[in-house]
Design a protein around this nucleic acid. Structure first.
Lengths: 213, 213
DNA sequence: CCGATCTCTGTACGGCGTGCAATATTGCAC
DNA sequence: GTGCAATATTGCACGCCGTACAGAGATCGG
């Protein structure tokens, strides 16, 4: 019934989707190795090459999956457009921080998967709602993507598995040579919170202010 | 005369600095391998471990070198503070794009080297000049860093060695399914220019507007 | 001159991505 | 049913990678 085409050869024991599934499951800070994924699937490494051209394809597929873990429907609804952008951005940030290293991955490949397009479309709609002409709305969309991914990547690198409180405490106790960097030393209590969700929201709000000024 | 301490053992044939030198020279999209650097130095790979604890240390050292390639003095002078931020940001972007992959590298390690601190201090001073209270100036500094590194990283990933014109042309000829993403399709000519310096400056200006609103 | 100390090398281990030929399995045409 | 062509999976191999470890040679203070 649901047998696909009448092509000869043995049945496939896997699928690209299943491979990405377990790669995602194994994902922890880094994209798992081909051999690691194969081992978890109880299969020789080369078997994966039946389903994927190379490791880069696995990475690309992972990017799209990860993007889908933040619910794009947060960009819909009847809340204010700013609220929706903020909520979605925070959700995405959360996903990228929980999956350590995911941010760097997202950042390393051009995002042209279907999920990326969907998010772009909805951001675009939001900015047009906010009164921007289409051209500026497009630019604003990219600016927001940059800010969200950039912040998530830096925070993920700095965090490295620790909780937000631990990271702040660790930074707070850093010694800044006040004779060379007086302003930095003076404002260091704030700089210690650079990688918090609070700072994330603050930056995002500032950017949105500037975009619709 | 300049002989260091009277410590036994043969003279060192290298130095950490020299290693970073040739690593930078060999850098092209990715941090060169330990073995590659050693080969270029005419030495066995393990020799490098006399000067560096591990490969991560090489990466960290490279980050600081790369950061220094954009002249921090661009943040000084008597031009308007906005102009200085913009000029420095563009210079840094240029460095990160010329050295493909450098952006991702900068982004993957917490930046706490001396060069990073210097840049931070000067940005801080600029925002205080602009009238922000110290706490907000600190936050603004980070927001700018995020935007610059984020944009450079995404652009570097998308560019992959091609010129700006080639990238724009390639994106322009992409087919966007208008029935699913009407707004995206409509504004695609703009989206094709997302990774240009022009868009970079536009986003940065918007962010600065929002920061000092 | 001795012994301590340090640099550099030889060798090796375990991991990686992946190319290639062989093997086993299947569906289709006859 | 039988043979054929297409296919999935494997075994093996290659050339990379980072780096641990022990030993050889150089260079110093005493």
């Amino acid at each position: 019934m649901e047998e696909k085409s009448g092509r000869p050869g043995p049945k496939r024991s896997l699928s690209a989707g299943r491979i990405v599934d377990v790669a995602l499951e194994l994902f922890d800070g880094e994209v798992p190795s081909i051999r690691g994924v194969a081992a978890r699937l109880g299969v020789r490494p080369n078997t994966l090459y039946t389903y994927l051209p190379d490791r880069a394809a696995l990475e690309r597929a992972l990017v799209d999956r990860l993007l889908a873990e933040a619910d794009p429907d947060l960009l819909l609804g009847r809340r204010s457009w700013r609220r929706r952008v903020e909520d979605y951005a925070c959700a995405l940030r959360g996903v990228l921080l929980r999956r350590r290293g995911a941010a760097a991955l997202l950042h390393s490949a051009p995002m042209d998967g279907p999920n990326a397009l969907l998010v772009g479309e909805r951001l675009l709609a939001l900015f047009i709602t906010a009164g921007l002409p289409p051209t500026e709305a497009s630019r604003a969309t990219y600016a927001v993507i940059v800010q969200v991914l950039g912040a998530a990547t830096l925070t993920a690198a700095d965090q490295d598995g620790r909780s937000e409180e631990e990271v702040v405490a660790a930074r707070q106790s850093l010694e800044i040579p006040a004779e060379h960097f007086p302003l930095t030393a003076q404002t260091w209590p704030t700089a210690a919170t650079w990688n918090t969700e609070h700072q994330f929201r603050w930056s995002l709000r500032a950017l949105l202010d500037g975009l619709v000024r």
